[in-house]
Design a protein around this nucleic acid. Structure first.
Lengths: 332, 332
DNA sequence: TCCCACTCTGTGAACGTTCACAGAAAGCCG
DNA sequence: CGGCTTTCTGTGAACGTTCACAGAGTGGGA
């Protein structure tokens, strides 16, 4: 029992391939009689379009590849990825575009992604957590394939449109809040300085604190919970009298909380802790985190929109920056 | 500038299409002279195989679809999914098979998945968190498409091979441990009773407790943190003197911890809490969770193996059940 | 009435592979 | 030397669509 083809439908409807193809693709020059006959024939035969055959001639695949650029050990700790992936799948599904997931954790992976895209196996690329100076990005830009990023790709802001939260302003909100709460020695644990979140959240921090943001009050993490623990330990050592810390992600903040607890500091009485992301861990820590909510789902939706627009041949309307909001819980 | 095709390679190497195709597919009847010429030609022209064209004739796509069957609100809270997805991608990549991600949160989604598979757009299906009685599964089985599941598909254990942790024995380990610690009134919060984890972890619990596992000591959650909170509240109301609770997932256990804290019960002094999964939340709670580690990555690897074997036309060697281990932290 | 525009339809070619087949060349055995 | 097997190669057809083109029918305006 072979699957029915467009020929079978045409025969059943008493028309030709061409006409069937026209209704399949929404061409307007089809008589209502033919259209109805064809629709009946499709239902009767159980015909399903063969996208492979279509792709061969249209040079379009109807799929998009999402590239996750985290090293393997670390990947996916961040619950935000899940939201982004889910939202993107849904957004693309409305246009019947499917989502292929690839990793770019090492050079072999990146090579594979390049081959995949260069081979024309995807109509567009959705970049996630791409670090500065990624060679793969150079190749993609050179190829001119439609691309979009969730969070800016550093150094490629003008070539690859993106959707992101307003990291800098979010960091300002949190820092201002800590200041307003009367905190005087405010430290920060940043993200990696080759990611937009790492850079801009630190910028927001220094925007508010000015020269009070001394070197000793700044340390760097890599988004992992473990790096939050060790970062907090370093800060306590360098500045034992700190009374607040702005941690650039909730996951790192969870790590910072454990270190503080082990050091016998009460949160928020002795040290206030501010996170960033409002991810699911924010409510499972003790105490629950005061944090900055970023509209991850909205950003993913916007990114999908930007990507589809490019695939349709339109010029994307620049980056989309979304506002953040302060969520006060108990840690600060 | 068109991309080079197999014709261009053939011309550059001074052979015919057929011979090029043979080296591309690893056929042994090719002279070393031709083979070398062709390999040079491929490198020089920058040729990349067009999988679409290949798919059209071979009826194989070189891709597999992973289906996530959680309702949209809830999906992805569980960090284990991330591990599974990542591991599956890596495993498939070694065979140059790509992974398409689809959701099956509502009927529309499921319909889309069916259309996709029926249309022959994937060589196999990787089922994640599929609930009992899912109509989509019936269709897939009927279609006879290679399929595999992470965690048994209830009612389809014999038709769809799977890889899973030994949920029942894991639950026994935890329950035994609680008993050994001298706990006398042990309750449990289960997962949904249409999932294997929900059913089997409860079975393990009653295996150990026998008739001591009274109705009042059993309540059901849906894997979410919130359901852990409310489940714990119900238990405290029904059985105020309980001194331990086995929660069928870490995420729900995190919820249970908050409820206990709000109720003024100390963990583990007043109430011991045992989780299940050893997911990332287990270490961010306070106190850190004593839990059951399941080899999620191993299970994903095995599932990929089972799937690829079927795609290669072999009979899968039955379900793979992997051992769990007790991880003692501070909550019990 | 004639011409043109518009609507609708069918047909052949093309997309870039693989596959089956046929046939050439080479080696071996009696 | 003749025939048989093995190795190697080229060719036409096929996979299931879309697309461009040509042509038929219809209606309206000059």
């Amino acid at each position: 029992m072979k699957r029915p083809t467009i020929h079978d439908v045409a025969a059943a409807a008493g028309v030709s391939r061409g006409t069937v193809s026209r209704v399949l693709n929404g061409d307007r020059y089809v008589s209502t009689a033919s259209r109805m006959a064809i629709e009946r024939a499709i239902a009767e035969t159980g015909y399903i379009l063969n996208r492979t055959a279509r792709s061969l001639v249209t040079q379009r695949t109807g799929s998009v590849v999402m590239v996750l650029s985290e090293p393997h050990e670390k990947l996916f700790e961040d619950p935000n990825y899940s939201t982004t992936i889910r939202t993107a799948i849904r957004g693309l599904a409305t246009r019947d575009v499917s989502l292929v997931l690839m990793m770019a954790g090492d050079d072999g992976d990146r090579e594979r992604v390049i081959r995949y895209v260069r081979g024309g196996h995807a109509d567009g690329v959705f970049l996630l957590s791409t670090h500065a100076g990624d060679r793969m990005v150079d190749v993609l830009v050179e190829l001119g394939v439609p691309a979009v990023a969730q969070g800016a790709v550093i150094g490629r802001e003008s070539q690859i449109p993106y959707a992101a939260a307003d990291d800098r302003e979010g960091a300002r909100q949190m820092t201002r809040y800590l200041v307003e709460q009367g905190r005087r020695r405010i430290a920060t644990i940043t993200g990696p300085m080759d990611t937009p979140g790492g850079i801009q959240r630190l910028e927001g921090f220094t925007d508010v604190l000015g020269r009070k943001a001394s070197k000793k009050l700044i340390t760097h993490g890599d988004w992992t919970q473990l790096s939050g623990e060790s970062g907090m330990a370093r800060l306590l050592q360098d500045t034992p009298d700190l009374d607040a810390v702005f941690v650039a992600s909730d996951l790192m903040a969870a790590g910072a909380l454990s270190t503080l607890r082990m050091a016998g500091r009460r949160v928020p009485e002795d040290v206030a802790v501010g996170g960033f992301d409002d991810s699911s861990v924010a409510v499972s820590t003790h105490p629950p985190l005061t944090t900055i909510r970023q509209p991850v789902a909205r950003a993913a939706e916007e990114a999908v929109r930007l990507l589809l627009a490019q695939i349709d041949g339109q010029r994307p309307d620049g980056p989309v920056i979304l506002p953040t909001t302060l969520v006060v819980r108990e840690s600060a």
